[in-house]
Design a protein around this nucleic acid. Sequence first.
DNA 1: GCCATGGTTCGGTATTTTCGAATGAAGGTC
DNA 2: GACCTTCATTCGAAAATACCGAACCATGGC
Lengths: 268, 268
Amino acid sequence: MKAPERIGQVLAHFTVTAPERATGEIAALLGIANSSAHELLNGLAQTGLLQKQAPGRFRLGPMIAALAQVLANTDGLVEAARPIVARAVADHGETVHVVKLAGRQLATLSAQSGNRPVGVGRNVISSETPLWAVGAGKLLLAYLPTAELLRILETLELTAFTDATMTARSRLRDQLTDIRQDGFAEAVAEWHPDLATCAAPVRSHAGVCVAAFSLAVPLSRYALQPRAYRAIAVQSADRISARLGWQDAGKPTGQLPGSNKKPSGRGQ
Amino acid sequence: MKAPERIGQVLAHFTVTAPERATGEIAALLGIANSSAHELLNGLAQTGLLQKQAPGRFRLGPMIAALAQVLANTDGLVEAARPIVARAVADHGETVHVVKLAGRQLATLSAQSGNRPVGVGRNVISSETPLWAVGAGKLLLAYLPTAELLRILETLELTAFTDATMTARSRLRDQLTDIRQDGFAEAVAEWHPDLATCAAPVRSHAGVCVAAFSLAVPLSRYALQPRAYRAIAVQSADRISARLGWQDAGKPTGQLPGSNKKPSGRGQ
DNA sequence: GCCATGGTTCGGTATTTTCGAATGAAGGTC
DNA sequence: GACCTTCATTCGAAAATACCGAACCATGGC
């Protein structure tokens, strides 16, 4: 296996639920020898990508934070998303994420918890989140190039988490097609029974989907007005897209007088 | 050269001033063949540590952001620093950083620009900042284990940036000793002629210095009341240390009645 | 239409990684 | 307090890889 891929695998195993890992643990997770893991981890600790807490115990290191600062200051998407995310949380109080796809995992670019007493934690959407069980995951899959989508779809083990979880590969494919046409995805109680998530595509200046704007809402509130949350997601995503230089071909934001075209012009 | 080190080198070359790099550029910077750089960069892009903008053009990738989220949620230091940084900026309006040492470079864990019309940009302190020319760098060096400090000192090329820059190795060593005893470092016009920086140590529950709290102030303001800025830095750093569980041996925060010990108990 | 620049591909060589076993340290149990 | 277990670390041989240079190809400029 190639070095960058191996290192990516190692880093990906440091998560919110398991922020500290031991040498043997990583060795077992990657299926390599203890001694190999030892060399890898200590090497990464020396560069600062990890830091050694104690002999054999590692956490993500300071270089991650430093690189993230660079990314936040230079990535147009992160920069464009920040104020829109803040505004959405302020206006509606629900938990908001802007996520991309990194390989076959979700990667959070920006996240903010809602301010309601009962709300969704910021960590529901993370690299451990199953793609097929949340709106953002399905949306990002839907906008993938077909060849890549098929490759990923084949390798996903469609585990069920609730009764509503999508486990049939063919049905999921059909749903992804719809999602791409609608420019909107939702997952109601497909991961956790009391959680609803929905997402809309963020588009670059060239019109390709580069990220998803995601809303995570307790089912009790989502069920009351699903259309409203849909509107919020689509509108916020569009606002970020606009900041990236995207010009909607169909209908910019509000209802254009005289334009009675259906909003189908959203697809790429 | 070992793989993690090589990858660290590659990532370190993505900075705020050069966020996008080309294959040949990286090859030249690392002194390796174009084809080697090609394989490295594309490998990193596949894992998500980098992303490919166009053939041969790379930027930091979504996985960096995802890992940073994990770090922010799980690293006690980052979490403890956040509110103190925000408070310091709100109270005094100057630019604040919390930084660590990653190898021989500074790594920003948390940063916030001041809100004054004339102030210091957030990017003065970055991985490109020379350690010996800013307070935070000198402070972190001062608290290093002696053996490691000597190794690093030897390899630093003490370039001069202003008249005040410390270029004599022996004088720098002496100053580092003082810094460690004082628990405070400053660098006045040693990096940029109109910039003053100062820093104080953040200590873990075990009392070891794990980061620096840094203030970056325009020289015009710093010169008016250097003692005040020193107090702010030390106090803020101590507040973060307290949140990490550190108990000051000497005098906790204010003046303890009956305790007329000099505050020399601050050292490790 | 030609040329130049720079990314990408490809095979041979050498360095690195990798593994298993042995060593050493730390923590728990009796 | 001594034993045992667990797990990181060290070490040397086998295998896999990163690395290089040369050829190829796409792009943009002249």
